[in-house]
Design a protein around this nucleic acid. Sequence first.
DNA 1: AACCAGGTACCTA
DNA 2: TAGGTACATGGT
Length: 299
Amino acid sequence: MEEIRIECPDIFDYEQCLAYLKRDENEVLFDIVDDKIYRAIKIDDIKLLLSISYERHYLIVEILNDISISPENTERLVNFIEEWFDFSADLSLFYQYGRKNEILEPLINELYGLRLIRIPDFFEAISWGIIGQQINLTFAYQLKKRLVESYGEKMTFENKSYYIHPTVDVISKITVKELMDLKFSRRKAEYLIDVAKIIHSQMLTKDMLLNMEDKVEIEKTLVNIRGIGPWAAHYVMMRSIGVKNAFPIGDVGLQNALKAILNLEQKPSKEQMIALNKGWEMWSSYATFYIWRAPYIKK
DNA sequence: AACCAGGTACCTA
DNA sequence: TAGGTACATGGT
């Protein structure tokens, strides 16, 4: 069996990352058993079933479905994992900056080593951004589960099923009614299928956004698409594009977490959010990710 | 039983 | 430009 070892960055806590990944029972794109992550992915059209575990500062990646892959594909696989766990970020810089902020300082201590878990698959990130709009996370996970199980590719290993997120190729060809049958609202069904068509036609690609210098330009490009507003644009920028200073200002979860941390009577206003963001501006994405975790820190 | 969920597009004035 | 509303459904 192939085994790949990936060295972790200095500041890295596998348990913190796992805790985030475990946040919902209905997650379908990976499974966690005994601190080992199981996930199906597709690389260069080859389906792989991976297990990922941690051992003395290395991630150990095993390919369970008895396939040997080329050196190029091994590199692609390593890139995927490193992107998923955001290994390229220099957390020492975030911490140095964030410790000066009274909201972030305790979070950095509690969550030390947590990395911003990314969504490398661009369409998966947009899909999740559209699904998550306005509804509670429980329902959002249910919708995603139905979408993935209906239209994603399935792998079976030792009597368990693993799914790969549906491709734009598949989703661009389905109907609004099919998604409404999965309890998507008509609007969300339209948004998702339309975005799939746009990406499928290459009018929008992840590379296109990665090559843009300016955050504002990326945001404008995303917001221009029906179904992606300011919140979803920033969400995709932080989770998939790797923008360091994205800030989903309208995010209710973020607002409620800040309300609790600051002991406010009401959720912070847009103006308050903008003011708070000044305290971590260069690192808004990480600040957001850490604040999202705040309600789950056990005292 | 209302009201709120990791919002957005669309309508009116 | 600003303000109001529908949207599908689950949790509290």
